[in-house]
Design a protein around this nucleic acid. Structure first.
Lengths: 204, 204
DNA sequence: CGATGAGTTCAACACGTGATGAATTCCAAA
DNA sequence: TTTGGAATTCATCACGTGTTGAACTCATCG
């Protein structure tokens, strides 16, 4: 028959490579995370990484594919009173990114800041999966949704940059309650405070 | 005597190298801006860059040193009614970054996002020259100044990332008036809206 | 004129990178 | 026990990087 030879057996290594990849991408970004460093972190020969995942781009995609699944988080952000949506968003974002499951998200973000290809990836992912599918739901006027949701993204991206990349104190070690109380209302204002009429036209 | 040999003559090249360096650093960030690319953009041999500036780090410092001088901008941000300080800050930041003089600032920012050394540089510069010297002046309670000024930095950094790095639409092509009207009030709120009492303790 | 030294270029080194393909180990099916 | 094929490693390639030092050009001074 066709089936013969060694069974897939030790597939721990494959997932330990993925873990190391997520860690390293999150810490150094796409470009500076070398295949050799990832392999070293996983205790494995660099060539094995290529054997499993082919190219570095495919490895990155494989490392992102599994854990980034906002399907469960989005309802959590949408449920509850809409007057506290900003507060809820900040808490959600911070709790996800501070958790081990947020490593992939941090890897994606850090990479997108320095690499064009991953920037395109993040842009498409954020726009189609997050902004249009969740944040836009919170905006009443659909004409204003694109700009308003991008403004929310602005505040959240800035929080990420200051806290996780530039590590500006005292914000980097501030607690989640403090940040939610400070930033939540501003996100809320981006969602539903009245804005000038220029907002309706796309190329304002 | 000591003086002999060819006079400095054509010193255009030195400043054209600096211009090319600022352009390239702004476009690609510190790491991906190769000496060869900078030299090529200036129409010059790569070795000449080393002859003038020694190392790549020194070239970066030289490219940043001249044009980054917030001494004139800070009074502009502080003058005027304090209720419109947020609006003024956003307008100032956008007008500076969109102008050719803002190339150095954009170079600094892009580099800090992907390189540890330049991140330290930007952190020290921003904290000592911008936040403590200008934004903190706008905060009434000195105990709250550190966190409040960092929050302002959060919103501004996020605007930069979304507009210049990720290029999220429609924000990337939005006009300065739209953005000032949308974001200014949020900056204002970071400056002087009442905040929970946790703010006073540094490690909140 | 001839010497000096700045402006400029050329060729090369040492290094780290992503990637490739042959070689080796080793389990499980026949 | 033989053997096929997956798991894993080794050696190597081609390339781009920052950096270096020797060589060349040439305007100016003595």
């Amino acid at each position: 028959m066709k089936r013969s030879g060694r069974r897939p057996g030790n597939q721990d290594t494959r997932s330990s490579i993925l873990d190391a990849a997520r860690r390293t991408f999150a810490e150094k970004g796409y470009d500076k995370a070398s295949i050799r460093a990832i392999a070293g972190d996983a205790g494995v020969d660099p060539a094995l990484v290529h054997h499993y995942f082919g190219t570095k781009e495919k490895l990155f995609l494989a490392a992102m594919n599994a854990p980034i699944n906002p399907g469960e988080l989005i309802p959590q952000a949408l449920s509850g009173p809409r007057e506290q949506a900003g507060d809820r968003l900040i808490r959600l974002v911070l709790s996800v990114w501070d958790s081990p499951a947020g490593t992939a998200a941090l890897a994606m973000f850090r990479s997108a800041l320095s690499n064009e290809w991953t920037a395109r990836l993040l842009r498409e992912f954020v726009i189609t999966q997050i902004l249009r599918r969740a944040v836009a739901e919170l905006v009443l006027d659909p004409d204003e949704a694109p700009l308003r949701s991008t403004l929310v993204a602005t505040q959240i991206a800035g929080l990420m940059v200051a806290r996780y990349v530039l590590k500006l104190e005292p914000l980097a070690s501030a607690g989640i309650d403090t940040l939610a109380a400070a930033i939540g209302p501003n996100v809320q204002r981006f969602l539903d405070d009245p804005m000038p009429e220029v907002f309706k036209s796309p190329g304002a």
